[in-house]
Design a protein around this nucleic acid. Structure first.
Lengths: 310, 310
DNA sequence: GATGCTTACGATACCCGTAAAGATA
DNA sequence: TATCTTTACGGGTATCGTAAGCATC
């Protein structure tokens, strides 16, 4: 058993059992991949993959068990290197944050600026994606820290921490008739076409829920991934927008007016997530602490370092 | 980084940084060991060991962090093999129980007999040692299950479960004057020389505590590792014995009489322990369940599989 | 002087990649 | 037929063990 074999096992699962892809991903030859799998299976005396003729189709029962352990081991192999860097490179290194447009654009900039000032030699990589993509990146070890409102909380392999809470707001072109309707009601909003976020993004679920509970069927004419796109179309008069309050800036968004509707939709909580068992550099913990001062390294590790093996 | 290097790191710590011993333990050459360490340190860019000239003296800070992770990885490497056997060998395999004399001789026999009947093809290895040795064996992966009254409860890396509770009894040569003194008192016992267990064995601590609390200083003239030795000397008239009640058998121990003293010394609880993160074969869980029916596989894994990394 | 670690060097085994053959869709 | 996996084989590399040299106690 060697590490290359373990990497191949993991990659084979990730690449849907296509060994050619695996070999490319790991920069080696198919033949080598094939042989490594066979060697490992021989050594263990168990078939790890379900085969139909020569094709691999999936994991056998022992294979499933195995992959869990293999993932842990490779995670630990990476942890070893991180620990080494911790000591040999001190304030130098890399930090990958996976986050959504909303957070990257409206919540994180001031944290990033602070962080950059403290750790000028740390290469900060901001990776943008959907909440599920963010979760995926964390699980695969491609990102250290995830920030999103959705999807992170339900995954047992991820430790999550509350970052901040926020509400939605309605935006309309300045002078819109809704401006006089204070306080806003769901029914009043639903009179107009709606422009808001995609499903699975930035609290869209709570918007659905609020209308659903009120038995109102809003006419969502356009859904977008980010507030900037939404604002553009609201400006063009396509409909009224529902966005996160933090995404509105009275100065920059001159032609628009924001209407409070914190009483209409539920409260959203944006979360910070770290993969359990993922060892992080000091500065990574510090990044989290910059987001929310009570999330100290001690608080975060207490949660991140407890893992259920199962 | 490869597994041989990891094994060498772990063994170096266990063998007190004597690379010659390490090479013997791993059936390889010193030169290889030496080079592997150097290679790994070069790869990681960190010195793992404190050196004085050519001698290794201990672990550096990064070394300490590293060793924790290395231990986990090697544990997982072993787990992989265990999982494989689980599927390829089904009812065949090996099970190592580390336990004290008392448990091996008086508590476990009926469990072992039952187990053997169910799993005739499992090679059962009973390893006898002191409670601390048992803990050590569990931590080093040399034993699957530990059974002892002492030492197991305080180690965070071990998950422990109550097996059964018991009291001490006094044994005397039949016809001894103490027989008429019912109920027994600590003072009455302390009139005679005492023969009992060694420190750190089979509830000796509670005996000390009882006498200490009563401000009585008993004259322990002989301490032994097991009840058989104690009984022999009590029979010879060296003194009165204090042993675990389970260790007395009215038929076999003909010349002796057991006197109840459950009111004098505290209750002892014998525990079953498993190293957290140590994957065990089905039959191992079954062994535990045979000891105590409420300790099902689900109950045990729920505890064993939760580990704090840090 | 005995023990323990490192370096040098030759033999071996392992790993990789090319190429050809076989299987699957 | 195009895609994918396995097997065979040769070249390169890494690992291992012996032996010699050197440091430590």
């Amino acid at each position: 058993m060697n590490f290359q074999q373990l990497r191949i096992i993991r990659e084979t699962v990730r690449r849907n059992f296509n060994l050619t892809e695996v070999s490319n991903a790991l920069y080696t030859s198919q033949s080598g991949v094939s042989k490594h799998i066979k060697d490992l299976e021989d050594e263990l005396g168990v078939e790890l993959f379900i085969r139909k003729g020569k094709r691999l189709l999936g994991l056998t029962e022992p294979g499933k068990e195995m992959v869990k352990i293999v993932e842990r081991m490779l995670l630990d192999a990476k942890n070893i290197k991180t620990v080494a860097e911790q000591f040999s490179q001190q304030d130098k290194g890399q930090l990958t944050i996976a986050t959504t447009h909303t957070q990257a654009r409206y919540a994180l900039p001031k944290v990033v600026m602070e962080f950059k000032k403290i750790y000028p030699r740390v290469h900060l990589k901001l990776h943008q994606g959907s909440p599920t993509e963010i979760a995926q990146m964390l699980l695969e070890g491609e990102a250290d820290i995830g920030v999103a409102t959705e999807a992170l909380g339900q995954i047992p392999e991820l430790a999550t921490f509350n970052y901040y809470s926020w509400h939605h707001s309605v935006i309309v072109p300045t002078g819109h008739t809704l401006e006089s309707q204070q306080p806003l009601t769901l029914a009043a909003i639903a009179e107009f076409p709606i422009v808001t976020y995609h499903e699975g993004f930035t609290g869209r679920a709570l918007i659905e829920k609020a209308f659903g509970d009120a038995q109102i069927a809003p006419d969502v004419v356009l859904s977008a991934l980010d507030a900037d796109v939404i604002k553009s179309y609201v400006e063009l008069g396509l409909g009224v927008g529902i966005i996160a309050s933090v995404a509105f800036n009275a100065v920059r968004d001159g032609g628009l007016t924001m209407l409070d509707c914190s009483h209409l939709f539920g409260e959203n909580t944006t979360r910070i997530a770290v993969r359990r068992g993922h060892f992080m550099r000091r500065f990574a913990y510090h990044f989290i602490e910059l987001c929310s001062p009570q999330l100290t390294e001690a608080v975060v590790t207490a949660d991140v370092s407890v893992i259920a093996l199962d």
